[in-house]
C-alpha cells in the first residue's frame, strides 16, 4: 500500500491508498456532513450530502466524499457557497418526503433548508438504503431490498425471509433516519405473515 498526499481545505494530508476523501478529511478533523454513510457498511453514495468539490488534472467537479478515492495531488474543498446550496437543496428534497426526520432537521438547521420549498410527498423513505445494506452486508439475510426504479423506487421486505428472520433481529430499525422502515415492516407483517414467528 502506497501513501497518497492530497490537499483538503488548504491542508495537506497523507493517507493510505484506498482511503476515501471522507476518511482523509476525518483524519484532519474536518467535518463533512453524511446521511447514508455508516461505518459498518460499504460506502453507498446515495444521499450526496457529503458532496465536495475536487480539482484533479485541471478538471473541477462535484463528487461524493464517501466514495471518491483519495488521489495524489487531489485538491478538495469541503465548504463553498455552491456546496452549501447543493446540500440545502438535497435536504429540502428529502424533507418533502420526511419533514420530521431528526437527522434531516439537524442538517436543515445547518444549511438553512426550508422543509416546505418542494411539494410535499410524504412517503417517509429517503432511500438511504441503510436498512437494505445492513441486512445484506452485516446480517447477510437479505430480508429487504429495493424494488422498482426512479421516483417509484421503494424499500420492501421479502415476506418469505422477513417472516423467519426479522422479528428476532430488528437491528435495522434504529438505523432508519425516518419512520418509513418501521411502517413498511408493520405493513408487511400484517398483510403477509400476521402473527407467524412471533414470540
Amino acid at each position: 500500500m502506497s501513501e497518497i498526499v492530497l490537499q483538503i481545505d488548504g491542508q495537506e494530508v497523507t493517507v493510505q491508498e484506498g482511503a476515501t476523501i471522507l476518511e482523509a478529511a476525518q483524519s484532519l478533523g474536518i467535518e463533512i456532513p453524511t446521511l447514508c454513510h455508516h461505518h459498518k457498511l460499504e460506502p453507498y453514495g446515495g444521499c450526496r450530502v457529503c458532496s465536495v468539490e475536487v480539482e484533479s488534472r485541471g478538471r473541477a467537479s462535484v463528487v461524493a466524499a464517501c466514495l471518491y478515492p483519495a488521489e495524489d495531488g487531489l485538491v478538495v474543498t469541503t465548504k463553498t457557497e455552491k456546496l452549501s446550496r447543493i446540500r440545502k437543496s438535497l435536504v429540502e428534497m428529502m424533507m418533502a418526503h420526511a419533514p420530521d426526520s431528526e437527522p434531516l432537521l439537524a442538517l436543515a438547521k445547518e444549511y438553512g433548508a426550508d422543509k416546505d420549498r418542494f411539494k410535499r410527498n410524504q412517503s417517509f423513505c429517503i432511500h438511504c438504503g441503510l436498512c437494505v445494506r445492513y441486512c445484506s452486508e452485516v446480517k447477510k439475510k437479505h430480508a429487504l431490498g429495493f424494488i422498482d426504479r426512479g421516483a417509484k423506487k421503494r424499500i420492501c421486505f421479502i415476506p418469505e425471509i422477513a417472516s423467519k428472520e426479522c422479528w428476532k433481529c430488528k437491528e435495522c430499525f434504529p438505523l432508519c433516519p425516518t419512520s418509513a422502515l418501521q411502517a413498511s415492516f408493520v405493513l408487511t407483517k400484517s398483510l403477509t405473515f400476521g402473527g407467524e414467528g412471533e414470540e
Binding site: 444521499c47 438535497l90 428534497m93 429517503i126 432511500h127 426504479r149 426512479g150 421516483a151
Partner: peptide, 11 residues
Amino acid sequence: ESCGKCVPCRE
C-alpha cells in the same frame, strides 16, 4: 429511467 439511487437524480 433514473435508477433511483442518488437524491439529486431521483428527486
